[in-house]
Design a protein around this nucleic acid. Structure first.
Lengths: 233, 233
DNA sequence: TTACCTTTGTGCTACAAAACATGGTTTTTT
DNA sequence: AAAAAACCATGTTTTGTAGCACAAAGGTAA
């Protein structure tokens, strides 16, 4: 756990959504309860069953939120990109974590005690509305995902995951290489399939010239076609 | 649309969670923006794509929230029991509905304009926290559900649905007959399977003496065994 | 270099679940 | 009361996907 002093300007830049609605006094309070922490690649951030204490904001890196299901199979529930908040749901719901989180790659994040957050929410209606809005959006996404993962076929699910990764983490300078390099296993866990099937289906997409694979590097070539495959399931 | 005048005492009894945190002035405001509406069995309450306007609270009856997916298949996302709120997520997320809602059986519900709700939230931190907590719980349930529906096998999913229906809507005086009489199709849509498979698996459970079926009436006989089947998937 | 481990890739098999077909009920409509 | 429609039940066929087993490639360490 690395504790680092940041100036208020730096903090404001890291967490604009949280910072902006606050009064000067509230900002001061927040700044004094702000710690920075780093995680190594593949390091676990929190586990299922633990008691949540902090709101986390990813400053740099990429994070997966996942759930271990029956028979050792793991399902990636959502992924976090920088400046996104996470790890707060369970605290609000007065539960322990029902998911786990791990770093896809080296990460820096800031931790703010949930007691501080709830204190701020109680005195700042704007901030309360921010969390209500955010939770509502996430709930919609989760419901959508339930149907996609259960009803679509393998090709549809994988195509969707690839498009989702592009939307979430973007592409490199060439405008088509996904900025995130996932293992086949993670790709499978994101798409609700076995590793073999992720590999197989990825190869099929490649031979159909929808994508180009080069190790973990994936270029999306025919996005329209992928979108169509994702849509029809 | 039936508009009915209710006394404040009646309203308070209908929506305690919403009513309790309010000041007297806020209660007055809410009472003036409170309408009651009835729906017939199987009637649609709202559709995917519509713009949300009201928070709804189910006063009596049973409601399903569902989503139409690929190939005409429908997935029941969650079910509502009396005194529960629903239909508010999309408004908070600033989206149109991504789900639809329909009445399992004749329903009475009250409608409160979302503008009234957000107004109250802004001036009442307790109420804001109520919605944050509620949304957080629903998000956890949704994530859990995603994994259950994708990873468990048919028997596990059906067993889980039966137990879920008991928890949600309870049982009749004999302590084992589910209080809700669903069609096989609805049961299938709740458990992510085809109607044929719901029928078949239900028959299997019956011949294994885990349940007794009599038309749409379902008695849970061996709940422990069902729980085990649900758990191992 | 060698050896070792992890990740990736491929072929084969087994099985679960969907799709289809058919017939019997019950409920609703006229 | 007859007809129509919806719903329930069960058997058969087909298909998609998981589950191996095994080989190749790439990375890491001695």
């Amino acid at each position: 756990m690395v504790k680092k002093e940041l100036s208020k300007e730096e903090i404001a830049r890291c967490i604009p959504d949280l910072w902006q609605p606050l009064t000067e006094a509230q900002r001061e309070y927040l700044a004094q309860n702000f710690t920075v922490q780093k995680y190594k690649k593949n390091e676990t951030i929190y586990c299922e069953g633990e008691t949540p204490q902090y709101l986390m904001c990813l400053l740099s890196g990429k994070v997966k939120i996942y759930k271990d299901g029956v028979g050792g199979r793991s399902q990636i529930i959502r992924v976090i990109r920088d400046t996104e908040f996470f790890a707060y749901r369970a605290y609000f719901a007065e539960e322990n974590y029902v998911t786990a989180a791990a770093a896809f790659e080296p990460c820096t994040m800031c931790l703010i005690p949930m007691t501080v957050i709830t204190g701020l929410i109680r005195e700042n209606a704007e901030l309360a509305m921010y969390f209500i809005r955010q939770l509502s959006k996430d709930l919609g996404i989760s419901d959508e995902r339930t149907v996609n993962l259960t009803q679509k076929h393998i090709r549809g699910r994988l195509a969707e995951s690839l498009l989702f990764l592009k939307e979430t983490y973007g592409v490199e300078e060439d405008q088509c290489t996904l900025s995130i390099y996932l293992s086949r296993e993670d790709l499978a866990n994101l798409s609700n399939m076995t590793t073999s099937n992720a590999i197989r289906t990825l190869s099929n997409f490649a031979s159909e010239k929808l994508i180009i694979i080069d190790g973990r590097k994936i270029k999306l070539i025919d996005e329209d076609k992928l979108r169509k495959i994702s849509k029809i399931g």
